[in-house]
Amino acid sequence: MHPATPPLIRFDNLTLGYDRHPAVHHLSGEIPAGALVAVIGPNGAGKSTLLKGLAGELRPLGGRIELPALPRGGLAYLAQRGEIDHSFPLSVFDMVALGLWREIGAFGALRGEHRRRVREALAAVGLSGFETRAIGSLSGGQLQRARFARLILQDAPLILLDEPFAAIDSRTVDDLVRLILGWHAEGRTILTVVHDYEQVRRHFPTALLLSREPVAFGPTAEVLTPALLARARRLSEAFDEDAPECHIELPADVIQPDVIQPDVVQSDAAEPGTHHHHAHDGHRH
């Protein structure tokens, strides 16, 4: 990442959550255009919540998300696989073709050139020959391939992937990683929630470590250190179910790209009472 690249995403003291309970807490910082970022952290750290917030699925409880350089409709968001109705009677071709929505809208017809691009996208994810199959007959890995084909057609400069590798065979994961690296090479900005730290080390140049609060953001090798991971775990365990209201207002640029700020958190959350906590609950993030 070059310092001169303009930021694509700017978080300004962002707090996201459900029913006033924050899942992402006072996040500030910038993500430059063209970054390939692995969003990591313990369960319930707010990784999926952050992506939902970026995708506009969730309104911030506080602070702002700014996407100054992003054109309208330039964001593609892949929700977790569990959020779609697998059994709907739809063919693989039709499902993937919906990735052309920005061009065909609600009423436009699929022209020959569109059909060719759909077939190309299917070939790119290794699903040639599956055009007429019902999506319900696909395996988990094949369904994820089809969803990636749809992403190819969406052709978005900013791509958000929520646990794209969860419960998927390793060969499919390898193929999907190759697609993601290809998008990265094309200059797209990609945020991916990943659980496997080994994958993060191997493929992702940048990592954002969340534990409700931002713990670290920067080059992967500097983020995935035992000390920072342990801090993230401690933070996630220390949150209080019946926390009082939070009145903390962090300054705007707590974290910066390429800068590790392990002291984002002013007090060690393992000691109760020394820090203001939001309450949290059992939502999955």
């Binding site: 506009g56 409709g73 593609a76 929700a79 959020e83 109705d85 920005r102 609600a106």
Partner: peptide, 23 residues
């Protein structure tokens, strides 16, 4: 007939529909 495409998406992948349109 007019609603078909948005309605199909609303049934099987509403998050995608919200992402690409206001339908």
């Amino acid at each position: 007939a007019l609603l078909l495409r948005p309605l199909v998406l609303e049934c099987f992948d509403p998050a995608f529909l919200r992402g690409v349109s206001r339908w």
